[in-house]
Computed example of a mutant assay.
Amino acid sequence: MITTIFTSKKLEKITKSLIEDYNEKLPEISKLGKWNATVFYVYRKKCWLVTNSRTRYSVILANVKSSDLSQINRLFKEALHRQMNYDSVSITPEEIDILIGDLRFNPTDNDRRTIGFQNSHLSTLEYRKDQYGMLENWPITQIVHFLNNTYFYWNKPKMTEGTYPVTELRKELETLETDLNTL
């Protein structure tokens, strides 16, 4: 299983060693679909905002250094598991491993909806810089919990009401429950 993460131009410059050519066909795609990642800075420390394009569920990887890039698969899965637990989504690390598999980083796909959604989150995170100061003072899971529980309207053909990213993630996991039960 492969999970594709499309990086922003800024993040692509930082992670050149991870970026692969996305023109070739992937053998399997993650059950949760693709993700988009961008970078933001908190007092000169790099943080990644990673958002699922299907559910708009977000995760923050805080203080990512160049030496961490070799372990980015593990760091992402741990951050996702920690955030899902905080958001009261019951899932085990083994189930996340099945859903995510290996990460594959690609240049931007210019998904304007997801990028716009991330830009909205980034403006919220700018406010948090003034509120919390140094990155060490940030309650990351609490902040991302707020982001994942922010009401938004998603212009899908059958969706006439707004929703929450965590609600969309739960719906997605319910449809995948049979796959997870085959552990």
Score class of each variant (00 low, 15 high):
Thr92Ser: 15
Pro107Ala: 06
Asn85Gln: 08
Thr92Val: 02
Phe117Asp: 06
Glu95Thr: 02
Ile91Asp: 04
Tyr86Pro: 03
Gly101Ala: 04
Lys77Thr: 02
Asn85Val: 15
Asp109Ser: 13
Lys77Arg: 11
Val89Phe: 01
Ile91Pro: 03
Ser88Ala: 13
Ser88Val: 11
Phe117Lys: 10
Ile96Asp: 02
Asn106Lys: 04
Gly101Trp: 01
Ile72Arg: 11
Tyr86Asp: 06
Ser90Arg: 11
Val89Ser: 01
Arg112Ile: 11
Thr108Asp: 11
Asp109Arg: 11
Gly101Asp: 02
Glu95Trp: 00
Asn110Cys: 03
Arg113Lys: 09
Leu103Phe: 02
Arg113Cys: 08
Glu78Asn: 10
Leu99Pro: 01
Arg113Glu: 08
Leu99Trp: 00
Pro107Leu: 05
Ser90Leu: 11
Pro93Ala: 09
Val89Gly: 11
Asn110Gln: 04
Leu75Tyr: 06
Arg82Gly: 00
Asn106Pro: 05
His81Pro: 02
Arg104Asp: 01
Asp97Lys: 11
Ser90Ile: 12
Arg82Val: 08
Ser90Glu: 14
Phe105Cys: 14
Leu99Met: 10
Pro93Gly: 07
Ile98Tyr: 04
Asn110His: 10
Thr108Ile: 04
Leu99Val: 09
Asn110Lys: 13
Pro93Glu: 11
Ala79Leu: 10
Asn106Gly: 11
Asn73Ser: 07
His81Gln: 12
Arg74Tyr: 15
His81Glu: 05
Asn73Asp: 14
Gln118Ser: 12
Phe105Leu: 15
Glu94Tyr: 07
Gln118Lys: 11
Gly116His: 09
Ile98Gly: 00
Thr114Pro: 09
Gln118Ala: 07
Asn85Tyr: 10
Met84Arg: 00
Ile91His: 07
Arg104Phe: 13
Arg113Val: 15
Glu95Met: 14
Arg82Asp: 15
Arg113Tyr: 06
Asn110Pro: 05
Asn110Asp: 14
Pro93Lys: 06
Leu80Gln: 01
Val89Asp: 04
Phe76Val: 07
Ala79Met: 11
Ile115Val: 15
Phe105Gly: 15
Tyr86Phe: 14
Ile96Lys: 07
Val89Cys: 08
Ser90Trp: 12
Leu103Cys: 10
Arg74Asp: 07
Phe76Lys: 04
Arg74Ile: 15
Thr108Asn: 09
Arg112Thr: 13
Phe105Tyr: 10
Asp87Met: 12
Phe117Pro: 01
Asp111Pro: 15
Glu78Trp: 02
Val89Tyr: 02
Arg74Lys: 13
Tyr86Lys: 14
Ile100His: 00
Asp109Phe: 10
Leu99Ala: 07
Asp109Gln: 07
Phe105Ala: 12
Glu94Pro: 01
Phe117Leu: 05
Ile91Arg: 03
Asn73Pro: 06
Arg112Asn: 10
Met84Cys: 02
Ile98Cys: 03
Met84Ala: 03
Asp111Arg: 15
Phe76Asn: 07
Glu95Gln: 14
Glu78Arg: 06
Leu80Phe: 05
Arg113Trp: 08
Asp109Pro: 12
Leu103Val: 10
Arg104Glu: 02
Ile91Met: 05
Met84Gln: 08
Arg74Asn: 13
Ile100Lys: 00
Gly101Lys: 04
Ile96Glu: 00
Met84Phe: 01
Tyr86Met: 04
Phe105Glu: 08
Gly116Leu: 09
Gln71Thr: 02
Asp97Pro: 01
Phe105Trp: 15
Ile100Asn: 00
Glu94Thr: 14
Lys77Tyr: 02
His81Leu: 13
Pro107His: 03
Leu80Cys: 05
Glu95Arg: 12
Asp111Phe: 14
Gln83Ser: 03
